[in-house]
Amino acid sequence: MEPESGANGTVVTEFILLGLVEAPGLRPAVFVLFFFAYLLTVGGNLSILAAILVEPRLHTPMYFFLGNLSVLDIGCITVTVPSMLSRLLSHKHTVPYAACLTQLFFFHQLAGVDCFLLTAMAYDRFLAICRPLTYSSRMSQMVQRILVAVSWGCAFTNALTHTVAISTLNFCGPSVINHFYCDLPQLFQLSCSSTQLNELLLFGLGILMAGAPVILIVTSYIHVAAAVLRIRSAEGRKKAFSTCGSHLTVVGIFYGTGVFSYMRLGSVEASDKDKGIGILNTVISPMLNPLIYSLRNPDVQGALWRVLTGKRVLA
């Protein structure tokens, strides 16, 4: 790769993504594994979407948000895995500068919407359990659409801000990224100009995009837990905790991996660990979400069975 000087000071025109494994003998196995993981993730999330569409009992705000979450899961794995698979097939590890920033933008766009959607789902559970008498008015179809639209708008602003900010950095070599997709921590390590402002920006926006949602989710579930414990029926308590347990599991995986990824900026030694976290973030989590939400939910299981068998239920 021949570096070129540009008007903005950027001399690196391509990055080299090392991928998950450097040993040629392991690449076919990695390709097969991640190809099937991709098919399973897309198939699982499309099945959830189909189940929500065909089952009248799932035409509720909670499953409206879950359907949007399934779309995000498909998008998140599609942004990262197919390009990795194509590099494994072509044995070409270079990624154009513009393509790297484009991947970064869409990854942060989808992850940002995920943050707000998980918060909206926690708010929905709070209203359903703690404010049942006003639930239908506070969580109307209009409110649901506004919450989703605001989620996309805020995530777009966040992703665009990071993309524009990193495009101002100079990259003059080396250009090797020890990862399988482009992300902020790895690009910070390669910049030959100061990344202090970018890191402050990541920290500040991270508080707004992740810290505030986590506080809202925790607050919602504190109220939910207090309300559920007041339910006299053991069966009622079990059902209420069951509907919240799936969401809390997804929240734990999503935010746990996110914090681990972005709170250790500048650690070159941790690159191999970052690959594992990246797999959890972009592959394992989207693949597990349909399973988590359907495992203990008879309505979803019944709807999935009807989708697979072709049976339809009249509303």
Rank of each mutant, 00 (worst) to 15 (best):
L39R: 05
P24Y: 08
G67Y: 00
L201Q: 09
L58M: 09
A303W: 00
Y135P: 04
L110W: 08
I177R: 05
V176T: 13
A210H: 13
I129W: 04
P298N: 03
L17I: 12
A50E: 11
D274M: 15
P174R: 05
P28V: 02
K273H: 15
F260S: 14
M139R: 06
V11A: 14
T119S: 09
S70Y: 02
N45I: 06
F116Y: 15
S167L: 13
V113I: 10
D274A: 12
S70L: 01
L295F: 12
G310C: 05
L117D: 01
I129N: 05
T219E: 12
G6V: 12
T41G: 05
L205T: 08
F15M: 12
Y97N: 05
D274I: 04
K92C: 08
V71M: 15
V71A: 08
L101Y: 02
F156W: 11
A111R: 10
V313N: 06
K275T: 04
A122C: 03
L280A: 14
V81N: 01
P96T: 06
Y123N: 08
Q189S: 09
L280S: 11
V21D: 05
G258F: 15
P132N: 12
T309N: 13
V143Q: 04
V143N: 06
C182H: 11
A120Q: 07
I279G: 00
G256C: 03
L46I: 06
P56T: 01
T10E: 09
F254R: 07
E55L: 01
V228R: 07
A99R: 12
S194L: 02
F34V: 05
G112T: 08
Y221F: 06
A120D: 12
S90L: 06
Q196W: 12
L110E: 00
Y123T: 08
Y123C: 06
R232S: 13
S90G: 02
G44R: 00
G67W: 00
T195W: 00
L291K: 08
T163H: 04
F241K: 02
I129H: 14
S271F: 07
A99H: 15
S175E: 11
A315P: 15
T134H: 13
A29G: 05
F36K: 09
F65R: 00
C130F: 07
G211L: 01
A50N: 07
G302L: 02
Y63Q: 01
L160C: 10
H247M: 12
V250H: 11
G112P: 02
A98W: 12
N198C: 15
I146H: 06
A234V: 14
S136Y: 05
S137N: 09
A37G: 11
G276E: 10
T243A: 10
G173I: 10
P96E: 11
C100P: 05
I52E: 03
A23F: 10
G236F: 07
N297Y: 03
A225Q: 13
G204I: 07
G204N: 15
C192K: 07
N68E: 14
M62D: 06
R306I: 00
R230C: 07
V42M: 04
R87I: 02
G9T: 00
